[in-house]
Design a binder for these strands. Structure first.
Length: 448
RNA sequence: CGGGGCGUAGCGCAGCCUGGUAGCGCAUCUGCUUUGGGAGCAGAGGGUCGCAAGUUCGAAUCUUGCCGCCCCGACCA
């Protein structure tokens, strides 16, 4: 992609309304534009990152055995009356009417709808288990939206729903998502800690929040330091097998958010040097809530004994748009974003120091073509901006590998390669740069 | 919803108290000079001063109402 054709409205100064670094950088890097309190348009750069994150989430859901579908954003009030939540949900639900005065709503979540879809198509225990998910925009009319996409009113969420014949099987579905979540966040480069959580208005008795530590996080969290050093299960994990021991390894350690925090237990279970109290961002939340919706909505299957039973259910959410905020909080410096390869909007930036110069233009175009032919995503700065501005902009948007091509180096057959992660630079031939990057990108995209 | 603050050019802000030609920096456009880490000089364009009503000879400025946004708190992916 030529930068001159792209739409990248970067800001030199930080807009006053943004108070946390991720919000500031998203605005400055031209990733989002605010359209109202808690409502954002995704500009091309932000959209690319969002899609990358979405794809990682999708791949790990699929790996864990979940099946993707897509439910609408607009739902009928009657569906929510079946579960009783139309009245219970309160002002967070955006209620609207259509031209026939039918009551509708913009979905804040999809338990009712997925239960309706499930009951329409499943009759027997032989069809279970089922794990269904979608990645869709939600709207929750938050009391106070803030921190940019971290607490927006409209946000992109991956929500999975599980249906099982009994509690043991439901636990197995829960465990699948538990492990899938650890893998998802790890692939994004984030260290997530599962913490026991309050089930809130959704109900049920088994729930974990997945927290990424960050100073700007909204939750106060407490955990055992050992959890921080525990790697996510690797690609060989068998989702069809018994995952309980992997889950237990994490859940035996103390980890709780402030609303579930028990000081006495914390001090008793965790030695003082291992006690971590910090702030964190909730990037995922998983619940098992039994038959709350299946009973209310008559989502039943025939069991092996010929009796109808209400399906055991769970729901599992990941805040996809919020993850962008969490990622920037984790990966940035004074200059701007520092994207991990797996989610970078572009893998490589080519900086043409003298656009219009035949030799430099030619060298840049060659590099660009060669890299793209290797499926490397390139943003080629072919603009007439000054060098300093180009460097600053490339750092701001956080492109992990940057190749600078100028007349001076080119005379010696050399370009400069910079790594955004540590700022290190090396001079090498264009061919060597391509080979180096090719390897690094392949490494960065490799799923472990 | 309670408390606090803000709304003036694309962005960051001053002007308001004490009413009288709407300003500054950055950005944009033109020209010249520069050109390897956010250039210099000269010039130019760009404003319903959030909206409405009121007071006044005269309102960005004073009054009232409304709208929007931000921050602190109670709620949440």
């Amino acid at each position: 992609m030529r930068l001159s054709r792209f739409y990248l409205p970067v800001l030199k100064e930080t807009p006053a309304e943004a108070t946390i670094i991720s919000h500031q950088l998203m605005l400055r890097a031209g990733m989002i534009r605010q359209q109202g309190a808690g409502i954002y348009a995704w500009l091309p750069l932000g959209f690319r990152v969002l899609k990358k994150i979405e794809q990682v989430v999708r791949e790990e859901q699929d790996r864990a055995g979940a099946v993707e579908l897509l439910m609408p954003t607009i739902q009928q009030a009657d569906l929510w009356r079946e579960s009783g939540r139309y009245d219970a949900y309160g002002k967070e639900m955006l209620r609207i009417t259509d031209r026939h005065d039918r009551e509708m709503l913009f979905g804040p979540t999809n338990e009712e709808m997925i239960t309706e879809i499930f009951r329409a198509g499943v009759r027997s225990y032989k069809d279970l288990p089922k794990l269904l998910y979608h990645i869709q925009w939600k709207f929750r009319d938050e009391i106070r939206p803030r921190f940019g996409v971290m607490r927006g009113r409209e946000f992109l969420m991956k929500d999975t729903y599980s249906f099982d014949i009994d509690k043991d099987e439901a636990r197995r579905s829960y465990n699948r998502m538990f492990i899938a979540y650890l893998r998802t966040f790890a692939r994004l480069g984030l260290k997530s800690i599962p913490m026991r959580a309050d089930t809130g208005p959704i109900g049920g008795d088994l729930s974990h929040e997945f927290i990424v530590l960050a100073d700007t996080g909204e939750s106060e969290v407490f955990c055992d330091r050992d959890l921080l050093d525990m790697p996510a299960p690797d690609i060989n994990v068998d989702f069809e097998g018994d995952l309980q021991s992997l889950v237990d390894q994490r859940t035996v350690h103390y980890a709780a958010t402030d609303e579930m925090h028990d000081v006495e237990e914390f001090e008793q279970k965790v030695s003082s040097e291992k006690r971590v109290s910090a702030r964190g961002i909730e990037v995922g939340h998983i619940f098992n809530f039994g038959t709350k919706y299946s009973k209310a909505m008559n989502a039943v299957v025939m069991g092996p004994d010929g009796k109808e039973v209400a399906a055991e259910m769970g729901s599992y959410g990941i805040g996809v748009s919020r993850l962008i905020g969490a990622l920037i909080e984790a990966f940035h410096d004074e200059q701007g974003c520092k994207w991990p390869v797996a989610v970078a909007p572009f893998h490589v930036g080519i900086i043409n120091l003298k656009a219009g110069d035949e030799a430099v233009d030619g060298a840049c175009t060659d590099l660009w073509r060669q890299l793209e032919s290797q499926n490397v995503e390139v943003i080629y700065d072919d603009t007439r901006s000054r060098a300093g501005e180009k460097f600053a902009r490339m750092d701001l948007i956080g492109v992990p590998y940057q190749i600078t091509v100028g007349p001076r180096g080119l005379k010696e057959g050399i370009v400069e390669l910079k790594l955004r992660i540590d700022g290190s630079k090396q001079e090498l031939s264009p061919e060597a740069a391509v080979n180096f990057i090719k390897e690094k990108i392949a490494e960065g995209l490799k799923v472990h």
